[in-house]
């Protein structure tokens, strides 16, 4: 399955909080690892990231955590 360029994929999501941004940064790396798996489904992964990001943005409000 052909994957869209990471940069394109990444810019489709707009985190609203620091926790969301940290999570998305993590996903950038995580995606590279996950897509080594032959069964990796890029569309499903993007949906999962989008879904989790929306939840994180909702929960973490606008201010950032310490995030050590």
């Amino acid at each position: 399955m052909s994957q869209p360029p990471i940069q394109d994929w990444y810019t489709t999501l707009q985190p609203r909080t620091a926790a969301g941004r940290r999570f998305l940064e993590f996903c950038k790396t995580d995606r590279l690892i996950q897509q080594q798996n032959l069964m990796f489904d890029s569309k499903l992964y993007l949906q999962a990231v989008s879904y989790a990001l929306a939840q994180i943005d909702t929960v973490s409000q606008s201010e950032q955590d310490a995030g050590i």
Binding site: C27, L44, Q47, A48, Y51, A52
Partner: peptide, 9 residues
């Protein structure tokens, strides 16, 4: 599936 994958993430 999305939720399970999101949990994994």
């Amino acid at each position: 599936q999305v939720q399970i994958m999101a949990q994994g993430l």
